[in-house]
Design a protein around this nucleic acid. Sequence first.
DNA 1: GTTGAAACCGTACGGGC
DNA 2: GCCCGTACGGTTTCAAC
Lengths: 160, 160
Amino acid sequence: MSSDVPPAPARIDDETDARLLRAVALDPRGTLADLSAAVGLSVSAVQARVRKLEARGVIAGYRAIVDPESVGKPLAAFIEITPLDPAQPDTAPELLQHLDEIEACHSIAGAASYMLFVRVATPRHLETLVRDIRLAASVSTRTTVVLQTFYEGRPLLAGP
Amino acid sequence: MSSDVPPAPARIDDETDARLLRAVALDPRGTLADLSAAVGLSVSAVQARVRKLEARGVIAGYRAIVDPESVGKPLAAFIEITPLDPAQPDTAPELLQHLDEIEACHSIAGAASYMLFVRVATPRHLETLVRDIRLAASVSTRTTVVLQTFYEGRPLLAGP
DNA sequence: GTTGAAACCGTACGGGC
DNA sequence: GCCCGTACGGTTTCAAC
């Protein structure tokens, strides 16, 4: 944890929900019985809470973590993009949505407009993707290749 | 999909495994019966394949997607870091591991050494985190604030 | 890969606090 | 409102084929 600063405005009131979230986040395939043991509530109570967390959107969904190399995409990169013509309406995220090599798209502060995170098979594929992005969204790009990933997708809630 | 380039060197030979992976990635809480229907194999065969994918590390794990705002971390940022003294042994990823605001840490090509992705509660917390990173790893930083996230964590495998 | 049987789990419902 | 216990149907598991 970082140094202390005024309390964070979390939207989950309950300490039990926090523990539930941690448990579910780390093992979404675990049984309700597992969660029940983790938080000290009955299976029914746990089920009701999980459903509420899903309904409120606190739990937005579930995903399996797939190894990029195993599916033929060992090369990752950040691509910052900037519209060539600032006067034009800027719809880059929509224009790029169909490119499934793009894993993430954020609007950012700073010189560029957007930051993309992409995964491809080879440098050759990266070249092609960058060209496709430039053409599809009428933008200039600045690509930063990832050499090694130490960790990513760490859970949002730290455990005590 | 991007334009065509020589075939990607995927490590999953089987077309059935590819479909399984897609199905599991999108709905890791679905039942084996669901997967069975999706790939046209018996429940037991599906179970065996999923277990193999897990054992081979193709499926590296499972996560619940937690809404950052709901847990009090609405502010995201990219932080590029560069060692102050290039002669010193560079162990930044380890030195920063304890900071749980850091969601990802990549080594990168370019001017900076690493790219971090972080989530915090407020600008004030970001300031504190940046200071902590500088002190912990003896690095200079360049922070890019995320204004809006259009999408992230999109599945690695595209549809058929 | 498939089938089948036993153990386990998710779910709904009734009741209590 | 939130929680607990129970009973039923679906699911996971594993052995035998």
